[in-house]
Design a protein around this nucleic acid. Structure first.
Length: 390
DNA sequence: TCTGGGGTCCTAGGACCC
DNA sequence: TCTGGGGTCCTAGGACCC
């Protein structure tokens, strides 16, 4: 029995939120982004898009295209609160709602639509309801799988409603350019084009199956199934966050270890506070550094226990900086915590050790030992390299 | 005036074990 | 003497999404 999935997508969400706060923006080209020298845009409203302005575009470039562009500093706490009202409204219609980002989600309305004369009446009602209650426009895609619903909601924006039945895949989906497939990005598209795969129809063609599986691996297989209408219609209604991070690109580059240590410490402090506020603890901490050449490195330390304590996180990050810093310029620093759990989950966890809450001293000892080991391995790597060069 | 920030998922390679 | 073959776990890197 086929399910009926809606993909509901808020149009130009951040920009729309800013228009709610200041209605005079509605008639102007508006973008939300960071105002710093190295900032890029998160979202542009539809007036700005007519100038060729789009998300991820550097601010200086957007201003070249549209000198009158109004750039607003993002107010993400506000967007999150509007977003949660959006999902609350969707849940009035069915508990089967899967948020997939701050501004879009899936609904399984297989049962709900049975109460409506025509299936699309529900989609129109949700659209009107969102506008009446929150003054927000959405596009809705209606299809039997999540992937097809997502593709459908992209077909008509803003404020569209698009149905994509399995039987309509060849006529509605296959003529679209291959770039339209969600899950193929700027690295993979050129590979496909080189092979003459230009449309979704080409991608779905049996003749290209082998190449796609080989070149794109598991993802290729999954996408190939998706464009044939064979993919998941099961919603994940409750899923918890798996990681949390904080990162910043600085207005100028940092060249000394002291500067990197200081900035890393500030970010770590902020992240620890955020985790304590959200009641979350993590086990795997990582430092990421982006240099002036745009090379990224990520280095991790396993803390051996769940924590959100600043002294512990700080010690680990300082160790990582001291071990991996190179005398080059860095433009971006990030702190990341993986293996996240809720505080309650951590404390409920039965342990075979007597001590349930490990003391900070012991963790610091572990970290220091890890640091010494890393320094040792780094030194022995260097020795090996030198020996090879001889 | 070169290129954000917060996420998820996959892959490759090495260590380690039997 | 010229080098097993899985399986699993961990780390690093990177593609992609909004």
């Amino acid at each position: 029995m086929a399910r009926v999935i809606f993909h509901v997508d808020l149009n130009a969400f951040y920009a729309s939120c800013e228009e709610l706060k200041d209605p005079s923006l509605k008639t102007k080209p508006v973008a939300v982004g960071s105002l710093s020298k190295r900032g890029v845009l998160s979202t542009a409203n539809y007036i700005a898009r007519e100038y060729g302005v789009h998300s991820a575009m550097p601010v200086y470039e957007a201003l070249k295209k549209c000198p009158d562009l109004v750039i607003v500093q993002g107010d993400y706490a506000y967007y999150r609160s509007v977003s949660s009202q959006f999902f609350d409204l969707l849940r009035k219609y069915t508990p089967l709602v899967e948020p997939c980002s701050i501004d879009e989600g899936f609904m399984d309305v297989t049962e709900t639509i049975k109460r409506y004369k025509r299936p699309l009446d529900l989609a129109f009602q949700i659209q009107d309801d969102l506008y009446d209650q929150l003054r927000l426009n959405v596009s809705i895609g209606v299809a039997p799988t999540k992937f097809l619903a997502k593709m459908a909601s992209d077909m008509r924006k803003p404020k569209g409603i698009t149905v994509l039945r399995k039987s309509e895949i060849p006529t509605k989906l296959y003529p679209l350019p291959v770039e339209a497939i969600v899950g193929l990005g700027k690295k993979t598209i050129p590979l496909l084009k080189e092979k003459g795969i230009l449309t979704i129809g080409d991608f779905a063609d049996d003749q290209n199956k082998e190449f796609i599986f080989k070149a794109l691996g598991k993802n290729g297989y999954a996408l190939w199934m998706k464009v044939h209408g064979k993919s998941s219609d099961q919603l994940e209604v409750s899923s918890s966050r798996k990681s949390i991070s904080l990162s910043r690109t600085f207005e100028r580059d940092f060249y000394t270890m002291d500067e990197v240590l200081n900035q890393a410490r500030l970010l770590t402090k902020e992240l620890s506070q955020k985790m304590i506020r959200d009641g979350q603890m993590g086990q795997l901490i990582s430092l990421s550094l982006r240099d002036t050449e745009f090379h990224n490195i990520v280095r991790s330390a396993n803390l051996g226990t769940y924590t959100n304590s600043f002294p512990v996180m700080d010690q680990a990050i300082q160790n990582l900086v001291e071990t991996y810093f190179e005398p080059i310029g860095y433009r971006h620093i990030g702190i990341h915590m993986g293996s996240i759990k809720n505080q309650e989950q951590v404390h409920q966890q039965p342990t075979i050790f007597e001590e349930v809450v490990p003391d900070t001293e012991r963790i610091l000892d572990t970290l220091n030992r890890q640091l010494q080991e890393k320094a040792f391995f780094k030194a022995s790597d260097l020795l090996k390299k030198e020996n090879r060069n001889e």
